[in-house]
Amino acid sequence: MAETKIHPSAIVEDGAKIGDGVTIGPFSLVGANVTLGDGVELSSHVVVTGRTTVGARTRIFPFASIGHQPQDLKYKGEPSTLDIGTDCLIREGVTLNPGTEGGGMKTTIGDRCAFLANSHVGHDCRVGNNVVFSNNVMLAGHCDVGDFVIIGGGAAVIQFARVGAHSFLGGMSGLEQDLIPYGMALGNRAYLSGLNIIGLQRRGFSRSEIHDLRRAYRLMFAQEGTLLERVADVAEEFKDHPIVMEIVAFIKAGGKRSMCTPKNGADA
């Protein structure tokens, strides 16, 4: 059983649940309703408060603000929660907010995520596994971010947007619409610039899988017909291709935002 280390200058309020092998550095504060899993490390000057659970082996760096009340003017003190998965990296100045009554009462973050300096996750968001937020990324409330998403430095995502799994949002982009799985969006305001080919290659997708995705992408975002008509055609042609059908399902499910599309036709 690993030893738990709490610096004399740190404050751990009565009621906090502290796992084995936790390190709580100088001038850190852990609130009464916080749970820290085994091996969690709070570097120094870290505040974890509210009804927050931090998964095992997650590391949090100085001046991060984890679990303070959400930046929603409608919040009235309801007992909402923030759930952070295992093996996450939360760097300096990161802010992660819990949920609100208007959004399901919880914010959830998956395993093995990296939040680089001064990035922000707003209230009632759902962030998947293996997600990377570069420095100064701003995720507004009620967003849904899939697994293996990468968001470049200084990018902003509007509230209620969906960011599909394995997609990439370029640095300094402003995303006002839903980004399809495996897609790449760039610019302010962001447009769909193709597929996240480099990301797919790095994660071991085969040449044939990438080829099918490119062909389906060009059909979905061609000039002829409406998007829903083209999606229906792709669904019929690629019904035995699970990766393509993931995009089809994402588009058909819809959300509160329209779909991010290319500027001038398809270009994968």
Rank of each mutant, 00 (worst) to 15 (best):
G99N: 08
A16R: 00
N129H: 05
K74Q: 12
V94L: 07
K74H: 13
P181T: 08
K5T: 14
H241M: 12
I210P: 07
R257V: 00
E224D: 09
N129S: 06
D20P: 02
R162M: 03
G104W: 05
A56R: 10
S134W: 03
S43Q: 13
K76H: 11
M184R: 07
A2E: 08
G19C: 06
R57G: 12
G154A: 12
A268L: 11
I158E: 13
D267W: 10
F160A: 08
I6E: 02
I150Y: 09
V145F: 06
K106A: 15
V47W: 07
N196W: 06
I24K: 06
M1E: 13
D147C: 03
M172K: 12
V132I: 15
Y217G: 01
T95Q: 10
L213Y: 05
S258A: 14
S80W: 10
A117C: 05
G99F: 04
T81E: 15
P98F: 04
G128C: 07
I158F: 12
K106D: 09
A216T: 02
V34K: 01
E246H: 08
I90N: 00
L195Y: 02
A253S: 14
L73Q: 07
A56W: 05
I6C: 02
I247R: 03
R112V: 10
M1F: 09
H241I: 11
F250Q: 13
P98C: 06
C143I: 11
I109T: 09
V149I: 10
L192A: 04
A165S: 05
A190F: 15
I90W: 06
L89C: 12
M184H: 03
L42E: 01
K252Q: 15
L169S: 07
S167G: 05
T108W: 09
D267E: 15
V248W: 00
A56L: 07
N129R: 01
M245Y: 03
G254L: 02
V12Y: 13
S65P: 04
S65A: 13
H45M: 01
A249R: 15
V48Q: 00
S119K: 10
M1A: 11
V157I: 09
K263P: 07
H166W: 09
I150V: 15
A155I: 08
V127G: 13
V131Q: 10
I109P: 02
A2L: 11
T100L: 03
G153C: 07
F168D: 03
K17N: 10
R230I: 11
G104E: 00
S65H: 09
E246S: 12
V12A: 10
V231R: 02
T4A: 03
G77D: 03
P70C: 01
P62F: 07
A161P: 05
G25M: 08
N196D: 08
K5M: 11
V12S: 05
S9E: 15
R126D: 04
G199Q: 12
D72Y: 04
N97P: 00
L186M: 14
G255V: 03
I158R: 14
T23H: 14
P262L: 15
V149W: 08
L116K: 09
G31V: 07
R207E: 14
K17H: 06
V121Q: 02
V94R: 11
D111K: 00
G25F: 06
D147R: 00
M105N: 13
I24Y: 08
T81N: 13
I243M: 14
S167Q: 04
F27W: 14
E3G: 05
K74L: 13
M220W: 00
A32Y: 13
R218Q: 06
F148W: 14
P70V: 04
I109A: 04
G85W: 01
G122R: 10
V12T: 05
